[in-house]
Amino acid sequence: MKVTDILRLKGNTLYTCTPDDTLRQAVDTMAEKDIGSLVVMEHGDLVGMLTFREAIAAIAANGGSVGTSLVRKVMDDHPLTCTPATELDEVRRMMIDAHARYLPVMERRMLMGVISFYDVAKSVVDAQDFENRMLKAYIRDWPAEDGDGVDGAAKPSA
C-alpha cells in the first residue's frame, strides 16, 4: 500500500495557515475544525507545520497563555515529508523514528495532502481486516477432495 491509497480514501480537505497568522488564530482553527495540525503555507509553498505539539510547547513557554506569538515563531520549519508513491511501511518507519504524527505529502513542490499517524494505523487495520475476511471466506469455501472427511482424514471404507 502507498500513501496515494490513503489520500484517495481520506479525501482532499486541507487546513492551512500562514506564518504571519497569530498562534491564537491557528489554535482557534485547530479547535474549531477538531484537527491536530495546520500546514503553514506562504506564497503557495509549504514553509512549515504547526501541530498541537508545537502549540502546547509555545503556550507552556508563555506561562500557559497563547499570547501574541506568530505561527512562524513556533512552527516546525523543516517538517518531514513523503510523496504519494512512498510505501506505507516506509511511512510508518519515518513517523516512528522522527516521532512525527503528521506528514505533508509532496509531489515535487506541490502539496498533495497530509497524513496522520491515525490515517496510517487505520489503513493498516483496514487492510488486515480485509485480508482476514478473505482468508475466512477461503477456508469456509475450501473445496473437499475426493475421499476426504470433514477434517481432511480419509473416510473409512464400508
Rank of each mutant, 00 (worst) to 15 (best):
Gly67Val: 07
Val39Met: 01
Gly64Arg: 12
Ser37Arg: 05
Ile35His: 02
Gly64Leu: 05
Ala61Ile: 10
Met49Ile: 15
Thr68Glu: 14
Glu54Pro: 04
Met49Gln: 10
Ile59Gly: 05
Ser69Met: 13
Val66Cys: 11
Ile59Phe: 12
Ile59Glu: 05
Arg53Cys: 06
Met49Glu: 03
His43Gln: 15
Leu46Gln: 00
Leu46Lys: 01
Gly36Ser: 06
Gly63Val: 03
Ala55Leu: 08
Gly67Glu: 09
Val40Asn: 04
Ala57Phe: 08
Gly36Arg: 04
Gly63Thr: 12
Val47Cys: 09
Met49His: 13
Val66Asp: 09
Val47Glu: 08
Met49Asp: 04
Arg53Asn: 15
Ile56Glu: 03
Ala60Val: 13
Ser69Phe: 11
Thr51Val: 00
Gly36Cys: 07
Asn62Ile: 03
Ile56Pro: 04
Ala60Arg: 15
Glu42Arg: 11
Ala58Val: 08
Ala55Gln: 07
His43Trp: 09
Ser37Val: 03
Leu46Val: 03
Gly63Asn: 09
Met41Arg: 08
Glu54Ala: 06
Asn62Lys: 14
Ser65Phe: 14
Gly67Arg: 14
His43Phe: 07
Val66Glu: 06
Ser69Leu: 15
Leu46Thr: 02
Val40Asp: 02
Thr68Phe: 14
Val66Gly: 02
Val66Lys: 10
His43Thr: 11
Ile35Gln: 00
Gly36Trp: 00
Val39Arg: 00
Ser65Ile: 02
Thr68Val: 13
Gly44Pro: 12
Ala55Asn: 04
Ile59Asp: 12
Ser69Trp: 11
Glu54Arg: 04
Thr68Trp: 13
Phe52Thr: 05
Gly67His: 15
Ala58Gly: 14
Met41Tyr: 06
Ser37Asn: 06
Leu46Cys: 07
Met41Thr: 05
Leu50Phe: 01
Val39Asp: 00
Val40Pro: 02
Glu42Lys: 11
Gly63Lys: 02
Ala58Pro: 07
Ile35Cys: 05
Val66Ala: 06
Ile59Ala: 11
Glu54Phe: 04
Arg53Glu: 05
Ser65Val: 10
Met49Pro: 09
Val47Gly: 08
Ser37Ile: 07
Ile56Gln: 13
Glu42Tyr: 05
Ile59Asn: 06
Arg53Pro: 06
Phe52His: 07
Val39Ile: 05
Leu38Asn: 01
Thr68Ala: 11
Asn62His: 11
Gly48Val: 02
Ala55Phe: 11
Phe52Asn: 15
Ala55Met: 13
His43Asn: 07
Thr51His: 01
Leu50Met: 08
Asp45Gln: 13
Asn62Ala: 06
Ser65Asp: 09
Leu46Ala: 01
Val39Ser: 01
Leu46Phe: 00
Phe52Asp: 13
Glu54Cys: 08
Leu70Glu: 11
Val39Pro: 00
Leu46His: 03
Asp45Ser: 15
Val40Arg: 01
Ala61Lys: 15
Gly67Asp: 10
Ala57Gly: 09
Thr51Asp: 02
Ser65Arg: 09
Ala58Glu: 09
Glu42Met: 03
Phe52Pro: 02
Phe52Lys: 11
His43Cys: 07
Gly36Pro: 04
Val66Gln: 10
Val47Asn: 04
Phe52Val: 07
Ala60Ile: 15
Met41Lys: 12
Val66Asn: 13
